[in-house]
Design a protein around this nucleic acid. Structure first.
Length: 253
DNA sequence: AATAGGAGCAACCGCGGAAAG
DNA sequence: ACTTTCCGCGGTTGCTCCTAT
């Protein structure tokens, strides 16, 4: 008798690299029908030559119906910065405060955008303290003005769309109770609606997703979904759109 | 027009904690 | 109580696209 759980997925014949539209379709089909109770079993059952881990990653980071995608708004960026100041590199915790955003997405955005911007502003992205003059970072900042301009421009482009979010963020900051709860181990969820002081049930149904033009159209049908709960029954209404979109070859891979 | 370098992002890797047996 | 595996997380890699030369 073998101790512990059953053997892990065999690494032999497991495919790596970018996912194809066909693979996406298989995974979505399976999860629509069966949910994702056991990632290890999914590849075999769904007819995928992938590791269960890879399936989970693909689902959580790309295929989940509630994902926003697109650039983070200014308000979201500011929230990430504030959360990072208190939580550090705990991306999953940070992502939990931004509905529709994944830890991977936030991590990438931090490393490629926010970190640089903080450096330009003379703020240490690790400590969130002002950088002392004559430090290396300061020298780098003063030399590279081009990037500042680019980021300033991109900021102005999202100004209108994030205006409402900014007000919501202000409300969070004003609310000491809410803010304090953010830093606790298991605080109440902060999402788009709770910033409006709505009830949790309303939160779920009123989340507005500012989709960009490259977002999947089928995601629009998922705005009414609960963020945490992906019961199988939830997918019935969107399955058609999802598969249609995939068949149109929207998948990048 | 060609190409080198940089930026952005999807995906993989390895680790630690939790859970199953 | 212990071993083995799963799951989730954070760090890292590598591919693709864009831009400057």
């Amino acid at each position: 008798m073998v101790m512990g759980r059953q053997p892990c997925c065999d690494k032999l014949g497991v495919k790596k690299g970018p996912w194809t539209a066909e693979e996406d379709k298989k995974l979505i089909n399976f999860i629509f029908s069966n949910g994702h109770c056991c990632w290890r079993a999914i590849p075999k059952l769904a007819g995928l030559r992938r590791c269960g881990k890879s399936c989970r990653l693909r689902w959580t980071n790309y295929l989940r119906p509630d994902l926003k995608r697109g650039l983070l708004t200014e308000a979201e960026e500011q929230l990430v910065i504030d959360l990072h100041a208190h939580l550090g590199n705990r991306w999953s915790k940070i992502a939990a405060r931004l509905p529709g955003r994944t830890d991977n997405e936030i991590k990438n955005h931090w490393n490629t955008h926010i970190k640089k911007r903080l450096l330009k502003m003379g703020i240490d992205p690790v400590t969130h303290e002002p950088i002392q003059k004559d430090t290396k970072a300061e020298e780098i900042c003063s030399r590279d003005d081009g990037v500042i301009n680019m980021e300033d421009n991109s900021s102005s482009q999202t100004e209108n769309s994030s205006c409402e979010d900014s007000r919501l963020l202000e409300n969070i900051c004003k609310d000491d109770t809410l803010l304090n709860s953010l830093w606790m181990d298991d605080p109440p969820h902060i999402d788009g609606a709770s910033r409006n002081n709505e009830t949790p049930d309303e939160n779920v149904s009123n989340i507005r997703l500012p989709f960009g033009e490259d977002n999947c159209s089928w995601l629009l049908d998922c705005q009414d979904f609960g963020i945490q709960d992906f019961g199988i029954e939830c997918f019935n209404d969107v399955e058609f759109n999802t598969l249609t979109t995939l068949e149109m070859g929207e998948g990048k891979h």
